[in-house]
Computed example of a mutant assay.
Amino acid sequence: MKRNASIAHVRWDLALRYRLIETVVWWEGRLTTHHLMQSFGISRQQASKDINTYIDLHAPNNLRYDRHLKGYVPTEKFAPLFIDDSASAYLHLLNQNHERAPHIEGLALAYAHTEVLQVPDRSVRPETLRPLLRACRNGLRLESEYVSLANPEPEVRLIAPHTLVYTGMRWHVRGYCEKNRDYRDFVLSRFRGLPDVLDESLNKREADPGWTTEVEVIFRPDPRLSEAQKAIIETDFGMRDGQLAVASRGALVQYVLQRFQIDPKIIQVKPEAQQLVVANLDSLKSWLYA
Rank of each mutant, 00 (worst) to 15 (best):
V278Q: 00
I262R: 01
S39C: 14
A135W: 13
E214A: 13
P209C: 06
I233W: 01
I159D: 08
D263F: 02
N138F: 14
Q243F: 03
Q254E: 04
G106A: 10
Q258H: 04
K77C: 05
L20F: 04
Y90C: 02
E178L: 15
L63F: 07
N97S: 10
R190H: 06
Q96F: 14
R190T: 01
R192M: 05
A251C: 06
V256L: 00
Y146G: 14
C136Y: 11
D182W: 06
D222M: 06
L198C: 06
R174Y: 14
D208R: 07
Y146M: 14
H162Q: 12
L31V: 13
Y65A: 07
V24Q: 05
G139S: 02
F237L: 09
C177Y: 07
A87R: 07
P271Y: 00
V217L: 00
S43Q: 03
D50H: 08
L31Y: 11
V165F: 15
A101N: 04
I7C: 12
Y18V: 11
L81G: 12
A47Y: 11
V278L: 01
D121T: 11
A47D: 08
A89Q: 12
Y176H: 12
A47S: 13
A228S: 12
G175R: 08
L93V: 01
W211N: 01
I233S: 03
K2P: 06
E153L: 10
M239N: 07
K70G: 04
K285G: 00
T114P: 08
L194F: 13
D66A: 09
R137Y: 11
A110M: 13
A47T: 09
G168T: 01
L164D: 06
G242D: 03
R157V: 07
R17V: 05
Y183N: 10
R125W: 08
L164V: 04
P161D: 09
Q274P: 10
Y146T: 05
L158R: 15
D263Q: 05
E227C: 00
H68K: 14
A8T: 13
E22K: 02
G139C: 02
I218H: 03
H9V: 12
D121V: 11
R134C: 09
V156H: 15
G250P: 01
R224D: 08
L94Q: 11
W211T: 00
S144L: 14
K70P: 02
L188S: 03
V278C: 02
D85G: 12
R134P: 05
S39I: 06
C136E: 10
P209H: 06
P154V: 02
R224S: 07
D196N: 13
C136D: 08
V124R: 10
V119I: 08
T53I: 06
A245K: 07
F40N: 04
M239C: 05
L109K: 15
K285I: 00
K204R: 15
H92K: 13
A89K: 09
L194N: 15
S189R: 10
L252H: 00
N95H: 14
V165K: 14
C177F: 09
T128F: 13
L202G: 15
S86P: 01
G41Y: 12
G238S: 03
F40W: 06
L63Y: 08
K77I: 01
E178W: 14
R44I: 10
L57E: 15
L288N: 01
G250A: 01
R184G: 12
V25K: 05
E76C: 01
V165G: 04
A47E: 08
